[in-house]
Simulated scan of single mutants.
Amino acid sequence: MLIEDDQSVREGLRLSLSRHGHEVATAETGEEGLRRLRETTMDIVVLDLMLPGLDGFEVCRRIRAGGHLPIVMLTARGDDLDVVSGLEAGADDYVVKPVRPRVLEARIRAVLRRWAAPLDAGQETYGDLVIDRGALTVAKNGIPLTLPPLELRLLLELSASPGQVFSRQQLLESVWDLDFLGDSRLVDACVQRLRTKIEDVPAQPRYVQTARGFGYRFGPL
């Protein structure tokens, strides 16, 4: 699903993505995009942030609240505020306009690979957190948590080596499947979302800890 209000951009991206083998549905407003998503099953959403009416940030939040669907956002600027706000709203990745179709297509495929990739089996207990790698579930104090695949993969990657510090670049490569295309803000935003779900006090994390100046590690140590 491509949600983009600029007709020339929308049609150009639709044609380009179609040539790469994607079946593309389009919408020119956030309201239309959400309606079509309720009516039809989609694999991924490419979402422009600057939409008339319901803007892309709110559309992103509503998609996230309603289910687990990967989102690549389009932003007219690479400004930190726009990018970070979009990632915090739940986007998995972003591309700055003007969009190079080959870059967008690569980002789409990378996001889809991450959401579909199998994960190692095994159940582990860390304090009040239970991670079942085989069932792909996480529970806290016996209560199941609902984690989108990207947040789950990040948690599984970090918890596979408790105490080890992972740089943002390492996490981009192992969790996001990105190297030179990556942006460390993807990691920071995902960590922030994950902490709100697994930590008692997100501002004082016990599990996903910051190694200042280096990256992140999994505790409790």
Rank of each mutant, 00 (worst) to 15 (best):
L150I: 08
P149L: 01
Y94R: 03
L181F: 10
P205R: 09
G213S: 13
T29A: 03
R10Y: 05
M1Y: 10
E124M: 15
E173S: 10
L181H: 01
A203Q: 13
L81W: 08
V96N: 01
V95Y: 11
L178H: 03
R133H: 12
D179K: 13
A76T: 08
D132T: 08
P98T: 02
R195I: 05
T125H: 15
I198T: 03
H20E: 15
S18F: 11
R35Q: 12
E88A: 04
G66V: 06
V9Q: 12
T40Q: 05
L49A: 07
G30D: 00
V208A: 02
I198Q: 02
A106Y: 13
Q169P: 04
R10F: 07
R100P: 02
H22I: 03
H20W: 15
G182H: 07
L74D: 02
G53W: 12
E28F: 09
T26G: 01
T125W: 14
T196H: 13
T196N: 11
D5T: 04
R36P: 01
I3S: 00
E31V: 07
H68P: 05
D132E: 08
A25Q: 09
V175Y: 04
R206K: 13
R185E: 01
A27P: 01
E105M: 04
G134P: 05
R195W: 10
G127R: 07
F166Y: 15
G134E: 04
R195A: 02
P118R: 10
D48N: 12
L49E: 03
Y216L: 13
G33D: 02
G215P: 10
V130W: 12
D43A: 00
L178R: 07
V165P: 08
T196I: 01
I108H: 12
L155F: 02
A160D: 01
S159D: 04
I44E: 01
R19Y: 14
A189H: 08
T29Y: 06
S161L: 11
K140E: 00
D48L: 06
V138C: 02
L156I: 09
L129Q: 06
L155S: 03
R19F: 15
E58G: 08
A27I: 00
R14K: 15
D5K: 12
P205H: 06
Y94I: 05
R102N: 13
D55H: 14
D48P: 14
R168L: 01
V138G: 05
D6H: 14
C190H: 10
E124L: 14
C60E: 05
P52T: 03
L87N: 09
R62V: 10
D188F: 07
G182D: 06
V9I: 15
D79H: 05
A117L: 13
L147N: 10
A65K: 15
S184D: 09
T40N: 00
P220V: 05
P220M: 05
T137V: 07
W115R: 14
V45W: 06
G67A: 04
P52M: 13
G66D: 14
R109W: 09
T75N: 00
G66T: 07
I108G: 09
G86Y: 04
V84P: 04
S18C: 07
D188L: 07
L2N: 11
F218S: 04
V187R: 07
L15P: 04
S18V: 03
P70N: 05
A116L: 09
G142P: 02
F218A: 03
V130I: 10
Q209D: 05
L47C: 09
A203M: 07
R113M: 05
A25N: 04
A89H: 06
L150C: 00
D93S: 11
V45C: 11
D6E: 14
